[in-house]
Amino acid sequence: MNRGNSTFTRSEPLSGDDTITIFFEETACEVPAGVTVAAALLGHDDHHFCRSAADQEKRAPHCLMGVCFECLVEIDGVKNRQACLEPVREGMQVKRQHEPVDESK
């Protein structure tokens, strides 16, 4: 997996069987099992998670605790998922969200 884009590194090594595969923008990434989607992506490619609806600026996780909504991604076809709250699952399809969609209104 390409980690060249990440400014973060794992401070503890991970043994082989503790990883699972998720797909980020259709590319397979091996990520640690049990972490949040935000942690998985930040360890892999933290360039950006979504773009702001108003000005299309790149955004990435800010609070990592569910309040800022700057980590919105599309998971398995469902938009508006907060990556910092969602744990990774084998085979999960994650995409950047290019604008928050308010499906409820």
Partner: peptide, 19 residues
């Protein structure tokens, strides 16, 4: 991107050992 809260950094470490 890259501006995070201190608490956010702490959460990231607790979740995944990332630094």
């Amino acid at each position: 991107p890259g501006v995070m809260t201190c608490g956010g950094m702490s959460n990231l470490y607790k979740d995944s050992t990332l630094v």
